[in-house]
Amino acid sequence: MGWLHTDDENGTHEAWVVAVLSGGEDAPHDTFEESKEAWAQRVNWAWSFKYDGGEGRRRAQGLRVVCACGWRGPRRPVDFKDPDACDEGLHREWIRHAEVSLSRTPPERLRRLLDEVEEAVQALSAPLRPGGDLDEQRPLLAVYLATRLQNSSEEWQKEAVRVAKAADYSWDEIAQALRTTKQSAHEKFRKFVPAEQKKQEPAAQR
Rank of each mutant, 00 (worst) to 15 (best):
V43T: 13
A160F: 01
P28E: 08
G56N: 04
W16G: 00
T6V: 12
D79C: 06
T12A: 09
V78R: 01
D115H: 07
T147D: 12
V193M: 03
R75P: 05
R112M: 10
P83W: 02
Q200F: 05
E119A: 14
W39K: 10
L124T: 04
A40Q: 15
A164S: 07
P106R: 02
K188W: 03
A40S: 15
P139V: 04
A98V: 11
E55H: 13
E159H: 08
L114M: 12
S22H: 15
F189A: 02
N44K: 10
Q176L: 11
D115E: 12
A203G: 10
E155D: 07
G56D: 09
L128H: 12
L90M: 01
Q197R: 11
A85H: 05
H97S: 01
K50D: 12
R111D: 10
Q61D: 14
E108Y: 14
P74C: 03
N10G: 04
E33K: 10
C86T: 00
F80S: 02
A123D: 15
V17H: 01
R112D: 14
G23E: 13
P194T: 04
Y169N: 00
W3C: 06
G56H: 04
A164W: 00
E196Y: 15
V43P: 03
A204D: 10
P139C: 07
E159N: 06
A146D: 12
Q205A: 09
P202Y: 04
R148H: 14
S153Y: 14
L145R: 05
E14I: 04
E25T: 15
V163H: 04
A203W: 10
E155Q: 10
K198A: 09
N44C: 13
R92V: 06
A167H: 05
Q61H: 13
W45L: 12
A46S: 13
G70E: 03
I95K: 08
G70P: 01
W16T: 07
A166K: 06
S152A: 14
V17Y: 01
P77V: 02
E93T: 13
E33F: 15
R42Y: 14
R72F: 05
R104F: 04
F32A: 11
A85R: 06
A60N: 02
A195D: 14
D84K: 05
P28I: 07
A27Y: 06
Q150W: 11
L141H: 11
A98N: 03
R112L: 11
N151F: 11
W3A: 08
V117F: 11
Q150L: 12
L145P: 03
K191P: 02
D7Q: 04
W71H: 08
L124P: 03
D135R: 13
E201G: 03
Y169L: 06
D133I: 09
P130L: 05
G23Q: 07
Q183C: 08
H5V: 11
V163G: 01
K198V: 13
D79T: 06
